[in-house]
């Protein structure tokens, strides 16, 4: 099974997103993560959808997505060079001795930003590919992590090529 990142342009209409999500449930496909927001053209939303499957399965997923009336365009970003970013907000325990400084140092190594400070915790914002986020969590250590919220992956193709209508 291969990890696949699909980019989808969708009519920005009520109910359109539920058709996309419903399709994955109906056809027994997985959604590992999903991000969605309007584009520079307010009539269009762009989704980045992380799933997994072999070529045959992804071909079917793509065809079925294209069958939805409100889906305007679909591409598999993992077919070519592309960028992936995800944002994580993570609340970390900072009790006792040098622990607070150590967390802060780790945060800087990962180019994270402390966005909120409390007596016994930091809230850190960190962006990057999923791997980087996971690495940061490993570096902090399970026992220090209080709460994690991640946006899911957003993706864009590299170079001059543009995914548009």
């Amino acid at each position: 099974m291969m990890r696949r990142l699909l980019a989808i342009l969708l009519e920005n209409e009520a109910g359109a997103l539920s058709r996309v999500v419903g399709l994955f449930a109906q056809r027994n496909y997985n959604i590992d993560s999903l991000t969605v927001a309007p584009t520079e053209d307010p009539t269009l939303s762009r989704l980045t959808l992380l799933t997994e499957g072999d070529d045959k399965k992804i071909e079917q997923v793509t065809k079925h997505l294209n069958r939805l009336i409100e889906v305007v365009k679909v591409i598999d970003l993992t077919d070519g060079a592309h960028l992936e970013r995800e944002l994580m907000l993570i609340k970390v325990r900072t009790e006792g001795g040098g622990h607070r400084e150590e967390i802060y140092r780790t945060c800087r190594i990962f180019r994270g930003t402390v966005v909120d400070v409390a007596p016994d915790s930091y809230t850190v914002q960190i962006t990057g590919p999923t791997e980087k986020l996971l690495a940061f969590m490993r570096a902090i250590g399970e026992t220090s992590i209080l709460e994690v919220v991640r946006t899911g992956v957003s993706g864009i193709g590299r170079g001059d090529k543009i995914f548009e209508l």
């Binding site: 109910g15 539920s18 109906q26 009336i69």
Partner: peptide
């Protein structure tokens, strides 16, 4: 109705 019929219609409108 839109939700119930979603998987079994070609398209729907409200």
């Amino acid at each position: 109705m839109i939700g119930i019929s979603r998987p079994i219609v070609k398209h729907s409108f409200i």
